[in-house]
Design a protein around this nucleic acid. Structure first.
Length: 595
RNA sequence: GGCUCCGUAGUUCAACGGAUAGAAUAGAAGUUUCCUAAACUUUAGAUCGGGGUUCGAUUCCCCGCGGAGCUACCA
């Protein structure tokens, strides 16, 4: 049923018989024939010209003749510059389509109890400010990756590590105490994460003012920073937090709850979630023991000042600090602690960290350390390292107020979607709740697709001056095609058209190409899982609907009078819709029945 | 300085070592008595420079040039 597999195997046999060469079928990857040539699948013959002792053209011709004679699926062939273009018997395509249409959850592999247990960490916010565009990319990648890995037959645990402690949150707390006048999310009507973010900014503002003031008294930058009473107060607050001071702790708990409520609202709107959330306040002490264990095993060493280090020079890296001279933990130690807790909770086979590429070095070190400390999955941990979202003139900078807020952006996208819908009159007559739902799905679809279609490893650019498009290579274009198909299917049902037998139909070029695309889906999902790339799914979905729109334009479905042909087209439409929906689901993007 | 990643149409993005480097946008020109024109069609436009490996290089290797990131007893 897998046509390219059939061809690969046939070619493998052909070259064995013709030239006595053993080429495993897996090594032969037939590709879709380019549009300008006749054929459906193309095999490159260069690998065999040496063994054949013939020109590429002759080699191709010989293989082609062998295939026509021995493989019923091949009806014709032509050879151009060593490329063997094969024409597949048209009725075979109906078989392929029937197979796809009859497969539930086509393209995905259901996990079993024995499937690998994979944990994916993403989002990982600080609690002192709301989520921004960079988090959006992270979260969407993490969520999509989780979906894809699950579709590839893995058991997936989605997790999040919240950085809820440290000097940053103390700054917000201090500012709230000093100038907050008891403000709460309820009293201000602000989302909790935004409220806390505002106090963080407020702290910074007062701190800067204090520094400026001190410098007018003739202090240097460094002296002023040392003399700052605000910063001293923040540090004092952190000390009290670490000692478990109940006053500080309860303020901390209250403000963190506000932030979490805010984050949850953002996650919910994005349509993402987690199976298990870890908090650094609960994990940051955990790593210490593990490090001391490593010290005993001789994996780490202690310096004269009491600090503990790992020597990674044998692995081409540097010495890495793990415990300060006062015995406290650093970031790396916390990550070791978190790893330890996680492994206690879940016997994971693989850990994937969705974290920006600025931390490449950190994860290189973490992998080595976990391995040295005896974590079976340490060496094989995956740092899913994605690129930054940049603005036209560089990085987002909170100091310059150029940070693009996640909630604001989502809201703007939804309202843009609504405006486009209204202008086009697409939602006229729909109940308001439904219209709002369409705008929500389409607006967020545009945003998600925009962020996911790019190769995750690469930096990408977002221009806040230009709104994200709804035409062309976009989420809404894909959603639109889906809605269009659903509309046709509704009308078909009204007209009483069933999808009947279509084996007798001879598909045209357009239809064949579309079936071929549909047939590609499972391998695209696998490849996306293997290479950790939601972008492959996004590009596939786009190619598929582009192909469908051309088919739709050229071939009438409801107007087709031949029942077999009409059935073929209806089946093609329904299967395309299902596949589009599945692919978008892997990206965390929803579909609508009309738009 | 060292290490890592990246350089493709005006712009934003594609291209398991394969044919004449694809799309989308912006530009030009079209398609609606016909299943949703958020669509379809036509047109013009690009691989940073120099070597090497290969039948074949945007892709792999080396040297430049340009950009980003890391190189904290911050997280």
């Amino acid at each position: 049923m897998q046509i390219d597999l059939i061809i690969a195997q046939a070619v493998s046999r052909a070259v064995k018989e013709l030239y006595g060469v053993d080429t495993p079928a897996e090594k032969i990857v037939p590709q879709a024939t380019r549009k300008e040539f006749e054929g459906n699948l193309t095999v490159v013959t260069f690998p065999w010209v040496k063994a054949a002792r013939k020109s590429p053209e002759q080699t191709g011709t010989e293989i082609g003749e062998w295939l026509v004679k021995n493989e019923p699926a091949v009806s014709r062939f032509n050879v151009i510059k060593g490329f063997l273009n094969l024409v597949i018997e048209p009725t075979y395509w109906c078989e392929v389509l029937r197979h796809i249409a009859g497969t539930t959850d086509y393209g995905t592999v259901a996990p079993t109890d024995r499937s690998p247990l994979v944990m994916v960490e993403y989002s990982s916010p600080n609690t002192n400010k709301p989520l921004h565009l960079g988090h959006l990319r992270n979260i969407l990648l993490g969520h999509s990756l989780s979906q894809i890995l699950a579709a590839c037959g893995n058991r997936v645990v989605k997790t999040n590590i919240v950085n809820d402690r440290g000097i940053h949150i103390c700054k917000s707390m201090l500012a709230w105490q000093k100038w907050g006048e008891g403000a709460t999310p309820e009293s201000t009507g602000k989302k909790g994460d935004h409220l806390i973010g505002d106090f963080y900014v407020l702290f910074d503002k007062h701190y800067k003012a204090e520094l400026a003031q001190l410098k007018t008294q003739g202090m240097s930058d460094e002296e002023a920073e040392k003399a700052s009473t605000l910063m001293a107060e923040a540090r004092e607050m952190l000390r009290r937090w670490e000692q478990g001071d109940e006053q500080v702790r309860s303020l901390w708990r209250m403000m963190n709850e506000w932030v979490y409520a805010g984050f949850d609202a953002t996650y919910e709107r994005m349509g993402v979630g987690f199976d298990k959330i870890y908090y650094e306040s609960q994990t940051y002490l955990e790593g210490k023991e593990k490090v001391l264990e490593g010290l005993e095993k001789g994996v780490m060493y202690r310096r004269e000042d009491g600090s503990v280090w790992a020597d990674l020079t044998a692995d081409g890296l540097d010495h890495k600090l793990l415990l300060r001279s006062d015995g406290t933990s650093v970031y790396m130690t916390q990550d070791i602690g978190t790893a330890r807790l996680r492994y206690q909770d879940y016997p994971i086979d693989k850990m994937i960290y969705v974290v920006g590429n600025e931390q490449n070095y950190h994860f290189q070190v973490l992998s080595l350390l976990l391995d040295k400390l005896g974590f079976s999955w340490g060496k094989g941990l995956v740092h899913f390292s994605y690129g930054m979202v940049e603005l036209p003139n560089g990085k987002m900078k909170s100091r310059e107020g150029t940070v693009v807020d996640a909630d604001d952006l989502m809201e703007a996208m939804v309202s843009d979607a609504r405006q486009v819908s209204d202008e086009l009159g697409k939602l006229d007559g729909l109940p308001e709740a439904e219209a709002a739902n369409v705008a929500e799905t389409v607006g967020l679809g545009a945003l998600k697709y925009f962020l996911l279609k790019v190769d995750p490893r690469k930096n990408m650019t977002f221009n806040p001056e230009e709104s994200i498009d709804f035409n062309g290579n976009t989420g809404p274009f894909i959603q639109y095609t889906y809605a269009r198909i659903r509309s046709v299917l509704r009308k078909a049902a009204e007209a009483g058209f069933q999808i009947g037998e279509y084996a007798a139909a001879v598909p045209c070029e357009r239809e064949i190409t579309l079936i071929q695309r549909l047939a590609d889906y499972p391998s695209v999902v696998q490849e996306a899982g293997r290479s950790y790339s939601p972008a492959l799914i996004a590009n596939y979905a786009y190619d598929l609907v582009k192909e469908y729109n051309q088919f739709y334009h050229d071939c009438s479905i409801l107007g087709e009078t031949d029942p077999a042909k009409r059935s073929l087209r209806l089946a093609l439409s329904e299967t395309t819709a299902n596949t589009v929906k599945s692919a978008l689901n892997l990206l965390g993007i929803g579909v609508v029945e009309r738009m």
